[in-house]
Design a protein around this nucleic acid. Structure first.
Lengths: 329, 329
DNA sequence: TCGAATTAGTAATTCGTTTTACCAAAGTCA
DNA sequence: TGACTTTGGTAAAACGAATTACTAATTCGA
């Protein structure tokens, strides 16, 4: 900056005023032009560290995730966060811990040393977490996860609404016997979607038949077996709501194996909206989307609206899971 | 730091020496303990910006990607880069430009202002790019892409070897008539894999039959049709090499539709190793993996070995695509 | 026993900005 | 014409560390 000042024949202060467009300083247009010319001539570029040191604004947000980067499911959290950060002139520092506690700790230290203006702690799938306590040394939002006592603000998908939406979509198309192939490992999604399924049935005056709810591990293979079992019943369901798209893939195989057609004989609806599966299956799979992008975006927006020095109230935000209509129902 | 010094009854210099474990400074163990005690008592944490300003090391790498974050294919580039950065005590600044030129420009400016110690410019799929010229103002590596005149160092997958590996795997299992369903839009992968396919046939003394090479858009639906056409020939192939896993998914459907079995009647091999598809298909799909993780890792390692102030020689690194054996061949 | 080496530390400068406080010249107004 | 305002700047002090050059006290070796 001193070099620029010398070349432009002004003081370093003036250069600073020019590059920052400081309105309170009266600098003639002619001088401004000279300064900019000198800047370009020298190829000078401000040093963000020096600036941040002085202004005490790092213009940086930190994102700590367990396996988010690894999984095609959840990367969109990062995308949403990054685009929102971008809109607020901030950049994103990301660390994927692969679930290792020590990496998590160190990453947190590093981010705090870099004086991030906000922290996001994101999980690959919606579940309870116990993050390191230092997390609260900066404003923080949990994304796709929550702490047991709900003492930290969190943004999570509304599983109940998601289950309701899926079931309702089937009911509206006239289905009365709707099977549900659910996950078997206890997690919020399991309980939430089941609850939504039940609420939707109740809302439309349909009976809840426990025999129509099967549980298995959430992979195509096990879902194939579960679907087969459901379809071989005498009073076979006319629609299957699958806990996720991978399971829907298994259900497709089972339906095709029995010579039945989708959606004419059996309708299928999934969950997750994994483009790779849902759009490639034949017929393309109607499914419910987890609002990953939206969660990332909202998290950043919450952090950005925060007055300096304060931290967010421990509100749990439930984001809706929208229906993605394709051709399987 | 001054507060810590005061509490420990030493100078700020001494605190600095203690926290950085400066060996050239002789500080007694007793003093060290006092300093650390003061640090913990005050909850002091070094300010990375001040440190970086003085040391001129930002401990940061920048990663600019087009759609990498969006795509389940390529996120592993980020993971590999991040883990390597981590090993070198660096953090990753990521920006996904969604292919927008202006975002790319600004992101680059921001990163240069933050004095990143290296830059990576990554593409979602292997293709030629023309990045902004300022890119070279920091040491840079292209990842999964290259410039026309090869004047920038790049790390790309070895498509030829990949095509060779896939074809060879089929030949070794006794297949003599091997079809290839290729991509139709011109790109390095199309030419490279075809070349690998031909080289493998030649190496094993098999004839190249143009009728066995079909081209279509790389989605399951079009590949379904292409596979059907191939399989309805009188001299139908006993194996199909698909340009990617999505297309293999279509080929599976075609094979099953004809009542044939995989791999007994027809073997299938894919490309990409999209876990979501490859592992969920039945039978699980044998495929060739694009070394995304490895490319990210290597990129960072190249940047890290670089002496300060220098830039990398414009070497094009071709990383091998390993065979992932499952049960479809 | 004296000079050299070692031990244990400190004062002051620097990194590259932003920002506050200040100043001189020119213009304005009664 | 003199006081006041506006215009167009500048000097100097932060921001929070790392680092260099130094000192004073102790130990060592011959």
């Amino acid at each position: 900056m001193y070099d620029v000042a010398r070349l432009a024949g002004v003081s370093q202060t003036t250069v600073s005023f020019v590059v920052n467009n400081v309105t309170s300083a009266a600098i003639s247009q002619e001088t401004r032009d000279r300064v900019w010319a000198a800047i370009h001539a020298l190829g000078w570029r401000p040093n963000a560290m020096a600036r941040s040191l002085r202004t005490r604004h790092s213009q940086t947000l930190g994102l700590i995730s367990d396996e988010v980067v690894t999984s095609p499911y959840a990367v969109r959290i990062i995308l949403g966060a990054q685009e929102a950060a971008w809109a607020g002139q901030q950049m994103l520092l990301v660390v994927n811990t692969s679930g290792q506690r020590d990496i998590e700790q160190t990453a947190l230290q590093f981010m705090l040393e870099r004086r991030v203006e906000g922290l996001m702690y994101a999980a690959m799938y919606h579940h309870e977490v116990t993050p390191p306590p230092e997390l609260t040394q900066a404003p923080v939002v949990l994304v796709n996860c929550f702490v047991a006592d709900r003492s930290l603000p969190a943004i999570v998908p509304d599983e109940v609404q998601g289950g309701y939406t899926a079931t309702e979509a089937l009911i509206r198309r006239g289905h009365r016997r709707i099977a549900f192939i659910n996950e078997i490992i206890p997690m919020p999604a399991l309980f939430g979607r089941l609850e939504g399924y039940r609420q939707a049935l109740a809302a439309y005056g349909l009976p809840f038949d426990p025999a129509l709810v099967q549980s298995c591990h959430s992979n195509a293979h096990d879902a194939f077996a579960a679907a087969l079992a459901l379809l071989e019943r005498d009073d076979r369901p006319t629609a299957i709501f699958c806990f996720n798209d991978k399971m829907a893939m298994g259900a497709y195989d089972a339906i095709k194996r029995l010579g039945l057609r989708i959606p004419h004989d059996v309708a299928v609806i999934g969950f997750d909206n994994l483009e790779l599966i849902a759009a490639q299956l034949y017929p393309p799979l109607t499914t419910v989307e987890l609002p990953h992008y939206e969660m990332g975006r909202r998290a950043v927006e919450l952090l950005q609206t925060l007055p300096a020095g304060e931290s967010l109230p421990p509100v749990q935000h439930y984001l809706p899971c929208p229906l993605i209509e394709r051709e399987s129902i």
